[in-house]
Every structure is written in structure tokens, then in C-alpha cells.
């Protein structure tokens, strides 16, 4: 398992800065949005690394060998720690 540098406090995925790691805590997304995220691997408890977050536009997260791009509004509905 990769070393974790979990940042203190709770925010959304959209607030995680590039190269930081975080863990998914909960979803505020709608049911079918949430199921889509889960089926693509973004599940509760997942530790991911932020690959690209420029503060505007979509973000890219990495876990294992997957790279997922998320729209900013959706990223704002995922609570992380």
C-alpha cells in the first residue's frame, strides 16, 4: 500500500491539491452519479492521488493504474479526508 499523507480536516475532492493524497469518505452525489463513480472504482475508503487540479475545470485523480477525470461540480460532491 502506498504511503499516505492524509491532510487534516474534511473537504471535497475538488479542494485536494495536485500531488496530495486523500481518502474518500462519503458522497453527496445523486444515486446514479454515485453508482457510476463506484463502478469506475471511486468507492468509499479509496485512497487516491490528485494528479491535476488547476483550481478551474476538471480534475484528474489516480489510484492503482487508473486515471479518472472528474468534472469540477461532481468532484465537489465527493467528501474526502
Amino acid at each position: 500500500m502506498a504511503k499516505e499523507t492524509i491532510r487534516a480536516g474534511c473537504g471535497t475532492l475538488a479542494d485536494v491539491r495536485t500531488s496530495d493524497k486523500a481518502r474518500i469518505e462519503a458522497f453527496d452525489a445523486l444515486d446514479d452519479e454515485r453508482m457510476r463513480l463506484i463502478s469506475m472504482g471511486l468507492r468509499r475508503g479509496l485512497v487516491f492521488e490528485m494528479k491535476h487540479n488547476s483550481g478551474k475545470g476538471p480534475v484528474t485523480v489516480a489510484f492503482g493504474n487508473s486515471r479518472l477525470a472528474l468534472g469540477r461540480s461532481l468532484a465537489g460532491k465527493i467528501r474526502v479526508k
Binding site: 452525489a29 471511486l42 487508473s66 486515471r67 479518472l68 477525470a69 472528474l70 461532481l74
Partner: peptide, 10 residues
């Protein structure tokens, strides 16, 4: 439109 999530394959 619902939020976007898309895989960036290698």
C-alpha cells in the same frame, strides 16, 4: 447535465 467522470486510459 450530470457530473462528468471519464477514464483517461494510458
Amino acid at each position: 447535465s450530470p457530473g462528468m467522470v471519464i477514464e483517461l486510459p494510458p
